[in-house]
Amino acid sequence: MVLTRNDDYFKGGLPYLDRVIFKVIPQPSTAVLALEQGEADYLWTIPGPDIRRLQANPNIVLARAPAGPGGSFCIDTLIFNLRRPPFDRLEVRQAFAHAINRQQLLEQVYFNQGRIATGPIASTMAWAYTPDVTRYDHSPERAPALLDGAGYRPGPDGKRLKVVFVHASTYARTAEVIRDNLARVGVEVELATLEFNAAVERVFVRADFHLGIASYCNGPDPEIGVTRMYLSTNIKPIPFSNGAGYVNPRIDELFARAATTVDEGARAAMYHEIQRILTREVPYWWLIETEGYRAFRKEVRDLRIWAGDLLERAWREGTR
C-alpha cells in the first residue's frame, strides 16, 4: 500500500515525506532482517528474540509503545466459560490463577514486552486503576487444596480434570506454557489451536469451550473497552463481548452509573470497586498488559510513536 503526500494538508508545509509505503512481511524474522539491512525504515512489531540484537544495533532505534496490535491498553486475558463445569466453581478459577506462571509467560513468551496484569483495568490507565485488589501470586502448591474443595480429586492416573483450551494460533506459545503449568497440578489442558476467525467463532459465538483467550483492549476509556466484558446484557454471540458469560447485578449497576457520571473522581471510585469485586470473583484471568516495541532506522526522525499522527512531522536523512 502506498500513501502519497497530500499537498493540501491543513498544516502548512506538512507532512515532509512524499511517499510512505506499507508492506506486509509474513515472517517476523524476515521483517527484522529487512529493517537491519535498510530495506525497511520502520517496523510495527518486533519478535521478542530479536529485541536484544536490535538494541545493540547502532543504526536502529527501539521505542516502547503502549499498545498491542489491536488498540490501546491491551490485556491478554483468559476467558473462563462460567456456564459449564469446571469453571462454574470459583475454587477452580482461583486454582488456575495460582497455577499459571505469569512471570514465565512474561519472560519467555512476551520477552518482557509488557507487565503482569493485576485486574481488569490496565495499570497505565492511571486515573481509573487501583492496585488495591485481590492478588493471586504464582503458588501452584495452593492449587490442589482448591481443586479438592471443588470436588476435583486426582484420579488413578493423577489427573484431576481435563479442559479444552480454545485459542487462535497467535497464542500458541502462551497456551503451551499454560498447559505445562497446569499439568503440574494435575490438570490436563487440551489445546485446540485454531485460525483466528475460527477461534473467535467457537469462543464467542458458539460458546463451545472451557478456556479461551483474547486480547481485550481498554481503549481510551474503561467505558469503551472494559464494560463490554462484564455486563450481563452483553452476553451475546458477538466477538469480544462478555465471553465468560459473567452475571453480577452489582457490576451491571456500577458500570451503568460510571457511564453516566461526569466527575472523574467519582467515576474512579466506582471503577475501583468494580476492580475489587472482579478480582475476588475472577470471571476472567488477566495475564499480561501487553506493550510492544517499535523499531526504526536512525535516519528517520521525528516519528511520533505515541500519537495518532505518527508521520506528520517525520523526515528521513539522506533523502530530500
Binding site: G70, G71, L194, E195, F196, N197, A198, V200, E201, R202, V205, R206, C217, P239, F240
Partner: peptide
Amino acid sequence: LAPGDPLYFLVGE
C-alpha cells in the same frame, strides 16, 4: 461446512 465466519475479521471488535 467449516466453523468460523469471515465477518469477524472484517468488522473487528
